[in-house]
Design a protein around this nucleic acid. Sequence first.
DNA 1: GCCGTTTTCGGCCCGACTGTTTTCAGTCG
Length: 570
Amino acid sequence: MPMHNAEIADAFEDLADLLEVEDANPFRVRAYRNAARVIRSNRRRIADLAAEDLTDLPEVGEDLAQKIRALVETGELPALEEVRKRVPQSISEMMRIEGLGAKKVKALYEGLGVKGLEDLKQAAEEGRVAELEGFGEKTQEMILERAADAAEKEQRSLRNDAEDVAEPLLAYLEAIDGVKQVELAGSYRRRKETVGDLDILVTAERGTPVMQRFVDYDEVAEVASRGDTRSTVHLRSGMQVDLRLLPQVSFGAALHYFTGSKAHNVAVRKLGRKRGYKLNEYGVFEGDQRIAGRTEEDVFASLDLPYIPPDLRENRGEIEAAREDRLPDMVRLGDIRGDLHCHTRYTDGHAGLRAMAEAARELGREYLAITDHTQNLKVVNGLDAKRLRRQMAEIDRLNDELEGITLLKGAEVDILEDGDLDLPDDVLQALDLTVCSLHSKFDLPRNQQTERVLRALDHPAFRILGHPTGRRLNQRPPLALDLEKVMRAAAERGRFLEVSAQPDRLDLNDEACLLARELGVQVAISTDAHTAADLDLMRYGLEQARRGWLEKKHVINTRTLKQLQKLLQN
DNA sequence: GCCGTTTTCGGCCCGACTGTTTTCAGTCG
C-alpha cells in the first residue's frame, strides 16, 4: 500500500519538532515544515511521483527529494530514526500544549527528565515544574489545565458548526456602539471545509471598549490573553477566538494578512520584496512610507494585481493567474438552476415528493431530481424496480400539476462490489438520470476499488458518481480510490462527478474540483437533501467548487432544463 | 534545507502578548 501524502508530511513534521527541541538550525527546521505543508496539500500522490523529479515540487530540493524517496520505498526516514536515538519521540507530544514550544519542552526534558504528557502532568502535580528556571507557578498551572486536553486529538469544526458559533458573535460585536468594521478572517473567510479557530478584525472609534465587551461576551468560557489590540478567548463550544483591534489605515493589510493562507501570504510578500516593499499586517511600506493598507484592493493594487477573492488564496497559482488576468470567474449560487440528488419518504428522506418539489421551487430551483436509494441498501428500505416504477408514475402525475418546477426521475443506485449497478437495465434506462454511489465495501484495495468504479462508469445508464470518495469529515477518511483515473474515464465517457454539499461530506473537495477542472470533467453540485430544509445546503458545496476554481460552465446544474436533458441523453 | 530579475552564498516575516529572568526569551499566528 503506497504511503499517503499525510503520512509523509507527518514524518517530516515529527523530524522538524524533534530537531527544534535539539536546537537545530531554525531555517532547516522551517524547510522541513514547509515541505511537509507542500506534500500534505498536494493533490497528487507523492508516492506515485517518487520516480519522477521530486525537486519540481516547491520547497523540495535534492536532499528532501532523496529523503522522500527513501521514506516511500522503505517506510522509514533515516534522519528521523537518527534523531529519535537522541531525543524520545514522545516529547514532541508536549508541544501540543498551547504555550509550550520547543525551548520550554527542551528545558523540561533536560531539567526534569520529562519525556511525555504523562510525565509532565506528574511533574506539574508535584510542583517540580514551577521550580525549574524560566518556569513559574502560572506556567505550571497552565500545564496542569491543558495536559489532559492535549491528550485528546484536536479536531477542526465543520463550516456550518463554525457559522453557528461565529454569526451571533459577529452580530454582538457589530452592535457595540462605536464599532465601525467587523470582519472574520482566516480559513473561515477563505471558505475552507473546516475551521480551526476564528480570527476577528475590528475597527472602532477611539475609546470604544471593544476588548472589554469581547471578553465579557456570554459564551466566553476562558480568557487566554487580553491586551489593548489583541485578545484570545475560548468559547464554551471549545472554539478559540482571536480578536484584533486595528487602526482604519491598516485594516485592509491586516485583513489580507490574517485571511491567509500562509502559503499565499508568503508568495505575496515575496512579490513585494522584489519591488523593494515591505508587507506586514500594517500595510505595504516603501522605506518608512506606507503606500497601501486601508483596503485589500489597495494592497493588491500596490503590487499591480487585481483583487484576488479569499476563496482562491491558497497559493495554487492564483497569483500568476491574477498577474495574467486569467483568474477564474467562479460559479455563483445564483447560477444554480437545479438540484440533482435528494431523498424522500420512499426511502430515508423525511418529506414527500410534493413537499420537496415545493421547497426547491421556493429556493428558485427550476428542476429537482428525485434520487432515492436502491434495493441493495436494505437499512433504508431501498427501492426495487417495482417500487421505483410506482414512484416514477407519481412523479409524472405531479409534473402535470406543478408549476414552476420540474421533477426529474432518478435514483441513487448502489454500485455493487463487482461494479454492477443495483437495478435491472430496463428500469435504469427509463430514468432521466442516475446518481451512482458506493455504500458498501469501503475497504477494498485501491486497485480493486478503482476497477469497481471504472466498471460502473461503463454502464450505459451511469450519469453521476455520487459523493465520490465517501469521506465523512472528522469521521471517515476518503476510501482508497485513484481519483485521477476515475476522472479521466468519466471525461472520456461524458459522465459527471458529484460535489456533495452535505457539510460533513463536501465530496469532491476543493482540490479534487481543481483536478476535475484540469481533466475536463464536469460536476454536479448537489445537496443530497433528506429533508426540505436540506435543499438549502447548496452553498456549502458551491463554496468548495469555487475554491476549486470551477466556473459556471464546469457545473451541469447551472444549465437550463433543456440543456441539461440534452447533456444527460448521451 | 531551500532558493535565485539582490542568483551558487547568504538570506530566510515579524509584531503582540505573557510570564518571569526586572529587561527579555519564548510562543503564537
